[in-house]
Design a protein around this nucleic acid. Structure first.
Lengths: 135, 135
DNA sequence: TTGCGCTCTGTTATAGTATAACATACTCAA
DNA sequence: TTGAGTATGTTATACTATAACAGAGCGCAA
């Protein structure tokens, strides 16, 4: 693993931290173009793949976006429940292994062996809930 | 709602039935090009949106693909647990409202109100499981 | 030290997915 | 008939992702 790659991945992490929310690969590309005017999508996707494998970021399949992992334990990929507010765009990460396990169990009855859980719940967060009716 | 649109949606359903599995929007486009040489992506996406809203198909977010809904009750959009075999591509639909409800409940503790559940479990199906080791 | 093989990175091009924006046609009712 | 509202057609373009190959750097054996 090269030094350049590490530095780049750190910059991707920085961009995601600054954003405080999900970014698309091309959002990140635009951010990094500040320091690296000629950087290409491939490079970003490679960094995202590495960060995703090591569990430092999550990919939001239903938004085609990437999010800094909010949990402490890294060094491994891991699943999470992601709740997405369709109103303000906030994404919260919930760790509930028992729920994922019970899903795996239900599917296991028919012989299915789960390796990766994509669980993304859309809705409205507490701040944007119906009782707010601001504006 | 026009007759033409209904006919088109029926053709999309047909294509998905013939495929016996998920198809991408452009797969469907290619299928329908047989009857409609000049059909455009927009048209397909509009048909898919209508079918999705009425619950006749599901969208697989993690595959960018579309799947015929396997359950009986239609006329409404509804969530399902989709188990995807990464080996053979088979997708099974599992209805487990209690699981989705318990997820909603967990998230509800922090004020989140769920409206749509994207639950896609990747793994290997019974036919492709490790004990098969064919080839 | 040199040369080889391996992995990582850079670069260019292209494939694949989705929607915007506007034009046209259809349908129903006044 | 005519006009409003909705559905459909058409063109162009934006957005997302990967293929394919070139080059650089590193470690190790001869």
């Amino acid at each position: 693993m090269g030094k350049k790659g590490d530095a780049l991945r750190a910059e991707v992490i920085d961009a995601l931290e600054r954003a405080e929310g999900p970014l698309s690969a091309y959002d990140i590309l635009a951010e990094l173009r500040g320091n690296h005017p000629k950087i290409a999508p491939t490079t970003i996707y490679r960094a995202l793949a590495a960060l995703s494998e090591s569990g430092k970021i999550h990919r939001l399949e239903s938004l085609n976006a990437y999010l800094l992992c909010g949990c402490d334990e890294h060094g491994h990929d891991h699943d999470a429940i992601l709740s997405i507010c369709d109103d303000c765009g906030t994404v919260e990460e919930t760790v509930a292994p028992e729920l994922l396990a019970s899903m795996s169990k239900v599917l296991g009855k028919s012989g299915f062996e789960a390796t990766r859980h994509v669980v993304e719940i859309h809705g409205t967060c507490a701040d944007c809930g119906p009782e707010q009716t601001n504006s």
